[in-house]
Nucleic acid binder design. Structure first.
Lengths: 203, 203, 203, 203
DNA sequence: GATGAATGAGCGTTCATTCAT
DNA sequence: AATGAATGAACGCTCATTCAT
């Protein structure tokens, strides 16, 4: 039980995050849910922030793993971008609890995240940025500022996840259909295109 | 006087929402900030959820006003869609307090939102859907299921706003530049296109 | 019961201060001892510091009343100083609970006392200073810096009280005998004197 | 090693006492500051009171050393009394941490101090008493009950130290000037004197 | 219509101490 | 000799809400 309690507490916290949301997550609940006294938490975490930061860090690491692995299967920037998007959405759905504390809290609600850990968080966005820059280099994507475009894509993905996790998407919409539509939107939105003017000749 | 206090309390709540965020909004703070006793709140609202719901409803109404007015100035579905997107982003920035409670809380944090109010919320999404359907009819937009695509666009807009309001967008990115990029992404993502094969002649 | 609860709570706090000492004084204890919930305290005091400060201020005021009244009965600086000393000791014995929080806590344990209230605290020391200055003017007291000498006298009185309240004075010593000895020490210590050299002629 | 840890813990406790004050001294802090587990403390001390008592005893011993050495340098009871007073004040300033627990806690905060240790504490007061008795024998001091007078002097010294350590002496007063004034007060307060009637000739 | 009085539940956190190893 | 694991009790404080007036 000993050293594993740290792990148990983190997992309990994750479960509670999914079940009740961040705002109802309390140290006491984590402890009692895990079958321990509230005091025991403080043997493994300096305070609530410490526990939360640990979860955030773990989540960032996992997300990075999933995102890093994604583009390998695809060739060409558009396909790689699509793979990245799908990986992001999958991660969020499979790790809703991590996602909730990683991205769904106001930055001023959480205690300042230590700078070195913050760098890990940024790496994820950089994967998108680099893929977009690649695509621009090869002419597959429209010109633009890759970092800004990456942030736009992130916004799209985050919005999709956020509405989904908050239970705000119309029940008649199939989740996977929405996700597919979103990925398409992302890729076509960036693609180098030639507009089809309905009444104009093509060339 | 009665109706006035109700109004005062709602406005005070909005102000506090902007200043302190939802998690720090409390009934007693609203009351004391408004210069009334905590008890007085309960003369005008059954409970906290009731007050919040009222604000949500107001917000939905306002958003609907802004969105409805937007496409009028533009002609053609793509321009109208762009106008809708800009209106949505403007609303969110100008009414951060409404936005926060309208869309940024887990649906299970608040008591069930009354069904008839919920319908109002849906109208907003329908404005997007109808514009997209229009564009598909005129051939300006790719084929697809308009309601799903509208939800994708909403996700994009919501994600943009959510990351912005949560203070998670990289400080080096200018807000308006990001918003412009996002609107572009939305419109180009839906446009009927012909791909530019890098190595193929254009015509 | 209503408005008086504030008074009740202050009195309960004073009783607990005498019984258990400052270090064991808690908001919860005060409340439950008074027969109220802990929450009720906060209807009357912003926080613990506020309650403590209120007691300190009351004590300073009372002490000032007693000290101000004292010299009236006596004529001549030495007799007036003696009267001041006796009044100080009486106050401390009769108001041990006030004394404990007024003077027996490290200044950094208590929250910073508001400046305007602090002035009240200083007035008490000034009564001693002025009497000493008087005595020097009339030649009854040795020359010296009155404010420093007043602080010395205060030290003497405070030390007497502190050892007494802490229960550290030898049980065989009668309290009033000690007090008398202390007052004598204070007055003779300041008196303009001529030393009696045992083996030397007087003039 | 064993005896060493005991020593280390005592010294760590003293350091923390100086840094943070008695009320913030905790067993776990002592242990972790010393680099040991909290449990280890209980191998060397039965409980917190035991540790504190040990420090008190050490302090009493040290004070006795300093006081015993003091009068040797001086001749005549008044000079010896002055030397004792100066030694007391020096000890308190140089060993604030000892002083705080030796004399500045309510006797009922700590568990009953073992009787045999208590005797040591009394020896210190007896040094004052004996010097005063000497002075009375030689005619240098006023008649009086030496033990009571010694307690008065102790009160004066303790009060001076207590106000100083608690940070309650006016910042404009120089510490050494106050100490000098206090020593003067002690000695002149006991000296056999002849009053100087303001309007009477000196001889 | 408005209030003062009051509360139970809960929060994050610290404490001295015990027990098995 | 030393430790890691664990805890019950307590702390100051905030919250939404109720009730009698």
């Amino acid at each position: 039980m000993e050293a594993d309690l740290r792990r148990i507490l983190l997992d309990t916290a994750r479960r509670l995050l999914v079940q009740e949301g961040y705002s109802r997550l309390s140290m006491r609940k984590i402890a009692s849910e895990a079958g321990y006294s509230a005091t025991s938490l403080y043997l493994h975490f300096a305070n609530k922030d410490d526990l939360i930061h640990t979860l955030v860090e773990e989540g960032m690491e996992r997300l990075f793993q999933q995102l890093s692995a994604a583009p390998a299967e695809a060739s060409g920037a558009p396909a790689q971008l699509a793979a990245l998007c799908r990986a992001y959405l999958s991660f969020a759905v499979d790790n809703a609890e991590y996602y909730e504390i990683m991205f769904m809290q106001r930055s001023d609600e959480l205690a300042r995240f230590p700078t070195e850990k913050y760098r890990k968080a940024r790496r994820n966005l950089e994967l998108f940025r680099d893929t977009i820059a690649d695509g621009q280099g090869s002419g597959a994507f429209q010109p633009g500022v890759p970092f800004v475009q990456a942030t736009s894509i992130w916004s799209l993905l985050h919005g999709t996840v956020a509405l989904h996790l908050a239970g705000r998407v119309d029940a008649r919409i199939d989740r996977d259909a929405l996700f597919a539509s979103v990925v398409t939107l992302a890729v076509s939105g960036l693609r180098a295109t030639r507009q089809l003017e309905p009444n104009a000749p093509l060339s």
